[in-house]
Amino acid sequence: MVERRPVLNFVQHFVLILGAAIFAFPIYLAFVASTHTGIEVNRGLPLLPGDQFFQNYATVLGEGLSTAGAPPIGLMLMNSTIMAMAIALGKIAISLLSSFAIVYFKFPFRVLAFWTIFITLMLPVEVRILPTYEVVAQLGMLNSYAGLSIPLIASATATFLFRQFFMTVPEELTEAARIDGAGPMKFFRDILVPLSRTNLAALFVILFIYGWNQYLWPLLVTTDESYYTVVMGIKRMANAGDSLPEWHLIMATAILALLPPVIVILGMQRLFVRGLVEVEK
């Protein structure tokens, strides 16, 4: 669209700004709420930030919410980070290797293996959550980081994406590497993985956020407070029983819980965008 018409420009900008405002407004409200005292928030939400910023954030980070029986936010943030990292890195490692096997090796039932993996795409975590819980419980992995992350690691999506990417790598590269005396694992390490760099970054961002946002699974496998994740924590805080929920602290927690994914995206933005738009060969 290269048309230059002032009216059209105005309409375009209006629509874009409106859209951005609709998306940003709840976050702004959450931030505003986190800078007032609980009494003010419960009386009716003001539209301008208050002066309780440092106090509220210090409370959630240091002490946690007494009423919710939750641990301090700091610990929950760390739990979430460990879980999301383990899930993202684990998914990438496993799917890289499995798609490497599927694309580059001829073994019996290769196609069957691929389709089996592919079909699991259609089964979200929630569908197999009970059997998975049973297995994890029997293995004694309840209330542990392993229990939080391992069952979520297998990833058909990532396997599928890497398979598609590997299939675009020119065959001559594989042959040149064979002539250069690189065995399969050397080829994988020296050539395939470096070539997948941008895809890895894009996938890492997506998978980190996927792991970070897990709610149902951590809720099932953790009963020990010291393994709670921050997403669960927010929900528990809102269940305040008889007393009023302490919205100012809940919102402060929500804002804090937003930060790590944002940091990951900002940090990887350049690679992430390249991985999404460009096939580098």
Binding site: P170, E172, L173, E175, A176, A177, R178, I179, D180, G181, A182, D190, I191, P194, L195, R197, E280, K281
Partner: peptide, 20 residues
């Protein structure tokens, strides 16, 4: 023998250089 053990070197049509 594997290509690497044949003591040969090959130049490909599209060069097949390692891009990274």
């Amino acid at each position: 023998l594997e290509p690497a053990d044949r003591d040969i070197a090959m130049v490909f049509q599209n060069y097949a250089l390692y891009p990274h």
